[in-house]
Design a binder for these strands. Structure first.
Lengths: 95, 95
DNA sequence: CAAATATTCAGCCGCGCGGCTGAATATCAC
DNA sequence: GTGATATTCAGCCGCGCGGCTGAATATTTG
C-alpha cells in the first residue's frame, strides 16, 4: 500500500501546475463533473497535453473518471483535497 | 506589482518539493524560526542545495530571513500559506 | 589582522516535465 | 460495417529543476 508521504508527493506535485489547478476549479464550477474534451477546450495547447494533465490529477487521486458514451467524465475527489487542507492546518493551530 | 496568479504559481511550486515542505514544518515546530544551518542539517544532500530551497521558499513569500550574528534565521510567513488555504476553501463551500 | 564559522554565489550536469505530432482505440450514427 | 467523434497512447525533444563542487562573502573570535 502507498505511504502517506507518497500521497502528499503526488497531490502537491499535481497542484504545482497552473493548468491542473485550473482544471480542478473548472470541474468544481461545472458542478462537479466535466468531460475531458471540455477540459481540453479551456487551453491553447494540444488536447493530448490536457490528457496527460488529467492523468496526473487522477493518479494523484484528485480526480476520478467514468465513461459516459464516448466521453470521459471526470469528477472531483474532494477527500483528496482534504489531505492538503490537513497539511496546512498544522500551521494554523493555536500554539 | 505581481499578479495574484503569479503568487499562486510561486507558492504551489514551492510546496511541490518534499524538502521544502519539510523545511516549512521544521520552522514551525522549531517555534517559528530556524537557522539556515539547522535547516540544512536535516537533509542528506549538500547544504548548498538547501540554500536554494530556502531561496525558493523565500521568493514564494513563505519565508523571510533576518541576519543574526553569522547565522541567517528564517521565519514563517503564515499569511502566505493562507493563500493556499483560500484557494482550497473554494472546493469546500456548500454547493 | 588572521583564522574559523556560517552561509551563499556561480556554474556544471543528468533527468524528468510538459509541450508537440502521429497513430490507435472506443463509441455512436447511418 | 463505415465513418465520424472523443479521447488516449506512444514517442520525440527542449528546457528547467535540483542534485553536485568549488569559490566567495559576511561575521565572530583570538
Amino acid at each position: 500500500m502507498p505511504k502517506r508521504e507518497d500521497a502528499y508527493e503526488a497531490v502537491f506535485n499535481a497542484l504545482a501546475h497552473p493548468a491542473r489547478r485550473r482544471v480542478l476549479l473548472a470541474v468544481y464550477f461545472a458542478g462537479g463533473e466535466l468531460s475531458a474534451g471540455d477540459a481540453a477546450a479551456m487551453f491553447a495547447h494540444a488536447w493530448q497535453t490536457t490528457t496527460r494533465h488529467l492523468q496526473v490529477l487522477e493518479k494523484a487521486g484528485l480526480l476520478r473518471h467514468e465513461r459516459r458514451g464516448r466521453n470521459r467524465i471526470y469528477r472531483l475527489e474532494r477527500k483528496r483535497l482534504e489531505l492538503v487542507r490537513d497539511w496546512l492546518s498544522t500551521f494554523f493551530r493555536k500554539p
